[in-house]
Each structure stands twice: as C-alpha cells, then as structure tokens.
C-alpha cells in the first residue's frame, strides 16, 4: 500500500504504529461540542475503527484503528463535524483541510466557571475561524483566568483572560477581604491606605479575585475585557520551557491579530531545509525583536496595552541533565 504521509497528515489522519492503520483527529475548538455529534463519532469508531476513541490532550477526539483506504468514505461522513466549526471557508467532502495548527484548547470559561473573566469557548471558536486551516504547527490555548487551568503557559500562544478591576471607594467597607486574598493568593497588588484600597497597577494581573471576594460590590469588572498573552512555551525533547509574558492589557483584536501575523512571520523565516521547524525555535533563531516587530505590524493597538521590551525564556536543555548520578 502506498500512502503520501504528508497528505494524510494534513488531512488530520496520522501514521500509527500499526501498519496500514491510521487514526482520525477530530477538532473540538475550546473543547466545546454539541453532543449530537457524538453519534457520528461513535458510528465512525464502530464502523471503521475498533469502537474506541481517545480524548486527546488538546481536547479533541482521536479515532484509532482505521484502514487507510477508508479515509475517503470517512471524510464524506465527517462533514457535519467540520461544518460545526463554523469556519468561513467552504466545507467539502474531502475532510479536514489542515492539521498542523493544533486544536485550540480552552478551559470551561465563564459559561460555567466563577473564576473566569471571559467566555473562553467563544474566543476559541473565534480564533479557530481566524487561523484555521493554516497548517503551520501552532499550539494555542485560552484560559479564563490566571489560574491557567488549560496550561496556556505550555503553548506557543497562551491567552489569559483578564479584567481591569474598577474600585468604587464609596461602596468600600474596608473589610480587607480583597487585600488579604490578593496578598495570600495573588501578587499582593492591593493594600489599605486610609481605609481605601490602593491598587498597584504594575503588580495587578487582572485576575478579578478582588471582585469575587468583595462582599459589597465595591470592586466590579471593567467594561472591556483584557488579555494577557504568553508566548513560545513548549514541551519536546530538546528545550522544554514555559511561555513568557508578551503582551498584557491587550484587546481581543490585538491578541488574535498577533497569532494571525505569526503565520506570515513563520512563512518568511522558517527553515525549509528541515523536515519541520517549530515556531519557538524560529523565534529563538530570528530573535524576539524581529518577531515582535513583524507580528505587531499593522495592528491597531488599544490604549492600555503593554508589550514586553525583552523576553528571556527559561526552561532547560535535556542535554544539561548532568545532575543525575547512578546509584
């Protein structure tokens, strides 16, 4: 059997360890899917696979043990799943148009979670519409608050929803609930000053905890939601590292625009002699300043936005694992 690995991979099927068997990866942006699609997933798994699915680390489904020659049939059937993504492109009978940009994952967000500052599901779907079917290998995740349950810090682009807390001194009863909590659980951005709460805007990460803790509504959410974006976190066999803050107090447009612009950046700078060069390594090679300049190009910046002057990524190289000794 002859298979064009590149084509099937781009079609969201993967080469598996079992000869002649593939696995289909179903995108579920934000991990949000209507259950009516479960019957379709079930029928494909039962008819073409082994009756199982794997729930992927990025919140998608992977249906294993599929024969390669069934791809065309399956592609026709999964049309409703692709349609459910609500993309601006025309949906065909040929399956997923790309798979390099991974499923956009998101925590449950403000539809359910009291901590969340925003509707992460909605944002995930919006970003999916904007960047899919680009095929470069990007990992994007959206988390509702700086608790970062979705691990935005392990992504190429981690979007953290924030709020700009508004303080109404006339409602404040000086109970210190916000101050104590911020000190204990967040960054200690709040302190009491003459019975009023003083917020250090530099220390504030916009988590919204003060709003949640306030028993009297002296703290409330600002009208505009804001985002913090952390970038170029990664796992992998070479240099795993946590994503670092790139912009804060950003508008949604800027956050989305940055990701969109990064595709062009990668297009310009990727080393095509390699089988695959990952975005984080491209930024390492090209330099943060070039990256910053190119991805911010043409974006209409909101007034409150702050952009990192420099970024120093930490992380480590596996090859430096010299602190181990045999017993």
């Amino acid at each position: 059997m002859g298979i064009n690995g590149k084509i099937v991979t781009k079609n969201a099927y993967r080469i598996t360890k079992t000869r002649n068997k593939t696995a289909l990866r179903i995108r579920v942006p934000g991990g949000y899917i209507k259950v009516k699609h479960f019957t379709l997933i079930q029928s494909i798994a039962e008819e073409y696979g082994d009756g199982t699915v794997h729930i992927t680390t990025r919140q998608g489904f992977e249906i294993p043990h599929i024969d390669f020659d069934k791809i065309a049939q399956i592609n026709k059937k999964i049309r409703p799943l692709i349609e459910s993504l609500g993309l601006d492109i025309e949906v065909t009978d040929y399956g997923y148009p790309a798979a390099g940009t991974r499923n956009i994952s998101a925590c449950v967000g403000s539809r359910i979670c009291p901590q969340a500052n925003n509707d992460t599901t909605k944002i995930a779907r919006k970003i999916e519409r904007t960047i899919y079917p680009n095929d470069f290998h990007f990992k994007v995740a959206i988390t509702g608050c700086p608790n970062d349950c979705i691990k935005a810090h392990m992504q190429d682009f981690g979007i953290i929803c924030t709020t700009d807390p508004q303080y109404d001194a006339n409602r404040c009863i000086s109970c210190k609930a916000c101050v104590k909590n911020c000190k204990k659980n967040v960054t200690g951005a709040l302190e009491m000053n003459n019975f009023n709460v003083k917020r250090d805007a530099e220390k504030c990460i916009g988590c919204g905890e003060c709003i949640l803790k306030c028993p009297i509504g002296a703290w409330s959410r600002g009208e505009t939601p804001y985002y913090r974006m952390v970038i170029m976190g990664r796992t992998g066999k070479k240099n795993p590292r946590i994503a670092m803050p790139f912009i804060k107090w950003s508008s949604e447009d800027v956050v989305v625009g940055v990701i969109k612009n990064t595709y062009a950046f990668v297009g310009r700078h990727i080393d095509r002699s390699l089988p695959k060069e990952h975005i984080g390594y491209i930024v390492d090679r090209v330099g943060y300043q070039v990256f910053k300049q190119e991805v911010m190009e043409g974006l209409k910046l909101n007034k409150k936005i702050q952009i990192a002057e420099n970024i120093q990524w930490h992380g480590y190289y596996y090859k430096q694992d010299n602190q181990f000794k045999s017993i």
């Binding site: 403000s110 009291p114 500052n117 509707d119 709020t163 509504g217 939601p225």
Partner: peptide, 13 residues
C-alpha cells in the same frame, strides 16, 4: 449591566 461579580453577569441594586 455587567456589574455582577462573575464575568458577563449583571447585578440588581
């Protein structure tokens, strides 16, 4: 409008 403690919620006062 939007002044509830949770995102996207209102409060009546």
């Amino acid at each position: 409008k939007g002044k509830g403690k949770f995102a996207g919620t209102d409060v009546i006062s």
